[in-house]
Design a binder for these strands. Structure first.
Lengths: 336, 336
DNA sequence: GGGTGCCTTGACAGCGCTGTCATGCTTGCC
DNA sequence: GGCAAGCATGACAGCGCTGTCAAGGCACCC
C-alpha cells in the first residue's frame, strides 16, 4: 500500500495538517519542521492523492485545453507547452477537440465544465474569437487564458500578427514584386483579419494599389490554398507573388503551381505564416513567419495558473516573431 | 451550489446508495426506481463529482496516453480516437509526451503513474516496443493496451504491416520496377522491421535479388528521407523506385529528388506508409498505405476499458489497411 | 405454512486530504 | 514584568461519493 499523509505525519512527528502546509507551500511553518517533513516525504516517496486533494480543497487542479482543429502540428506544440507549465505547478491538463461552428458549441463546453470541473481553460484560435463562449465563461467566473488573440482584458499570450504580416509582405516588395496577392485565412479566426490588415498596410506603405482580385478567401486548409492559387493563376495578369495567411495554404499554393507547371520561385514567389513543419516539407521550402507556439502554450498556461493559484490578475504577454526566409521567395523574374 | 447525490436521493425518495447504483449501472435495481432516479438526475442536471467518486472507489477513472513524438498528425488522430472512447465510458484521458530513448524513461513513467494514478495506459509506437517498460507494467499489474504492435499476450489494436508493406512493394513491381529500394524506419520502432520484412518478402516473391545498397537506414523523419534519397541517387545504377517506411520520409525523398532536378514519377517512383496528411501535401501526392489511426486509437482504448471496467481479458484487434495509390508511382520509364 | 434463496434497498463507515478554529508559544514593547 | 500581537502547530470535521453488510420483501418450493 502506498504512503498516506498520515504516515508522513507520524514519522515526522507532526500533525497531518503540518504536512499539508509544507506540501502546499503555505506560510508559517518553521524551516526546521519543513525540512524534517520533506525528508520523510522523500524517504517514503509520498505523493498526495489527487482525488482526495481535489475533494477536500474543492478544486480540481485541472486545466482544460480547448481547440478546434487548426493544424495538428500547431495543436501539438501548444499542448506540449501547456503540459510543461502544468507539470511545473502540479496541475494536470485535459484536452478537448471541439467544433466551434456547431450550433450546440457553448452547450458542449458547458457540459464539459460541468463534468470535469477544470479550474481554468486555455482557449486557442478560433475558439478565442467566439464572443458567446467568452461571455458565458465570464458569467460563470471561470478563468481562461487565450493564445494568440487580443481580446480586451483577457489574459494569455499574443503576437503582433498585423506587423508580422506587414513585414513579410514588405519582404516581397523589396524583392521587386508589385503584383502581390493575399490568400485570407478562415473567417471565424480573428488572426485572418489581422494578417489581411498587415498585408494591406504594407502594400499601402509601398504605394501599391491592391486590386480586389488579388485578395481571395481561404480557410487555412491545404485544399483552400490549392483553390486560391488556381483562381489567381487564371487572372489575365496573374500576381508574381502570393502571401498566404498560413503555411498549409502556402503549401497548397505551391502544390497547385507545380501541378500547373509553374516554377516556384522563378515564376511565382510564395510566402506563408506560422512556420509549421509543412513549410519545410514542401519543395521549395516556404518563407514564413515563425511564432514560438510551444512557448506560447506555456506562457498562456502560466498566466492562467498565476490567476488560479494566487489570485493574481495575470496579463496578456506579447511574444516576438521572426521571419524565416527560405527558398519559395526570390526577386521578381517574370516582369523583368 | 451544484446538486449532490444526496439531493438526488432525497428528491427521488431513495438512499444515496441507490442513486449510486443507478449511475454506475449496477444490477439489482428495480426498473421503476431506476427511472425515477434518472428523472431527478436530469431535472437537477446532476453530475457526480469525479474526485469524490475516485476517492471512494479507489480508482482514478483516468487512462493515460503515452507517446514519443512520431508525427504530430498521427498522435492527434490516435488521441482523438482515445478521447472518443473515454467520453463514451465516463473516463478521462491524460496525455504524456515522452522520450523513450532517455535513460530515465522507465522512472519517468513510474513517476507519472505514481502521481496521476491512471487506471490504465495506452502505448503508441515506439513505446510499445520497450521491453523494460512492459515488464515493469506487468509487475505493477497496471493494464495497458498497445497500438499497432504485436506484443504477445497484449491487448489493443494491430495491423498486418508486413503484408501491407509487401503489397505496396508488389504494386511497384507490377508497374515494371526491378530496382526498388527501401528506406527503413526508426530502429527503435517495431514497425520498421515488419515493413522491411514485407519489402523483402515481395521482392523475393517477384524473384528479384535485393542488393544491399538498396536498403538504407532512416529514422521516420523528413530529414532522414532526404539523406536516404541522396544516398540512393548517388549509386552507379540508382533505383527506379523507392519505398519509404513512412510518409514523412517519402516526402523527404520527393523533396530531395526535386532539389536534384529529378522528376517524380517519371524518373523515380516513390511510395510511403501511413497516409498522413503530408502524403497529400507534397507534389506529386504520395502513394501510400492507409491505416485507420483514429479508429485504432478508439479500439485500443475500448479494449483497455473492457479490461478495467469489467475485468474482461480484452483482445488484440486487427484492423484492415488500404492502399492509397496516387501520383508518385508510375510505370518504369527510365529503363524502357 | 414455513423454509429457502434471491432481489431490492438502506445505514453507515471511511476513502485521504484541506479548511476552520483553537491553542500554546515566542517576540517585542512600554 | 506584563501584555498584545503574531507565529507555529494541532484537533477535528467534512468534502461527496462508494464498499460493505445487514435487513426487509417477495417468489417459489415442498
Amino acid at each position: 500500500m502506498r504512503a498516506r499523509i498520515e504516515d508522513v505525519a507520524r514519522q515526522a512527528g507532526v500533525s497531518t495538517k503540518t504536512v499539508s502546509r509544507v506540501l502546499n507551500h503555505e506560510p508559517n511553518v518553521r524551516e526546521q519542521t519543513r525540512e524534517r517533513v520533506l525528508e520523510v516525504v522523500r524517504k517514503l516517496d509520498y505523493r498526495p492523492n489527487p482525488s482526495a486533494r481535489s475533494l477536500a480543497a474543492n478544486r480540481s487542479f485541472l486545466i482544460a485545453l480547448l481547440y478546434d482543429n487548426p493544424s495538428p502540428n500547431y495543436v501539438m506544440e501548444i499542448q506540449g507547452g501547456v503540459l510543461e507549465a502544468c507539470d511545473a505547478h502540479q496541475f494536470s491538463m485535459m484536452v478537448r477537440p471541439l467544433d466551434s461552428q456547431a450550433p450546440d458549441f457553448v452547450a458542449t463546453v458547458q457540459s464539459l465544465i460541468g463534468q470535469q470541473r477544470p479550474d481554468g481553460l486555455i482557449l486557442t484560435p478560433p475558439i478565442t474569437d467566439h464572443p458567446e463562449l467568452l461571455a458565458h465563461l465570464d458569467q460563470l467566473d471561470l478563468p481562461y487564458a487565450t493564445v494568440s488573440s487580443r481580446i480586451q482584458g483577457s489574459i494569455g499570450v499574443t503576437m503582433d500578427e498585423t506587423r508580422a504580416a506587414a513585414e513579410i509582405t514588405s519582404h516581397l516588395v523589396r524583392l521587386g514584386h508589385r503584383r502581390i496577392a493575399h490568400v485570407i485565412g478562415h473567417p471565424a479566426h480573428g488572426g485572418s483579419e489581422l494578417r489581411l490588415a498587415g498585408y494591406r498596410k504594407a502594400m499601402a506603405e509601398a504605394g501599391i494599389d491592391v486590386r480586389s482580385e488579388w485578395v481571395v478567401p481561404g480557410a487555412f486548409s491545404f485544399a483552400s490554398g490549392v483553390a486560391a492559387a488556381r483562381q489567381l493563376m487564371a487572372l489575365d495578369s496573374p500576381p508574381t507573388a502570393i502571401f498566404a495567411a498560413n503555411d498549409d495554404m502556402a503549401a497548397g499554393v505551391i502544390w497547385a503551381t507545380a501541378d500547373a507547371g509553374w516554377r516556384v520561385p522563378q515564376d511565382l514567389s510564395v510566402a506563408g505564416f506560422d512556420d509549421t513543419p509543412i513549410s519545410r516539407q514542401v519543395w521549395p521550402a516556404v518563407s514564413t513567419v515563425r511564432q514560438p507556439s510551444r512557448d506560447m502554450g506555456r506562457i498562456a498556461a502560466l498566466q492562467l495558473l498565476r490567476r488560479i493559484r494566487h489570485g493574481e490578475p495575470g496579463e496578456l504577454v506579447q511574444v516576438p516573431y521572426t521571419l524565416q526566409l527560405r527558398d519559395s521567395t526570390a526577386s521578381c523574374k517574370r516582369d523583368a
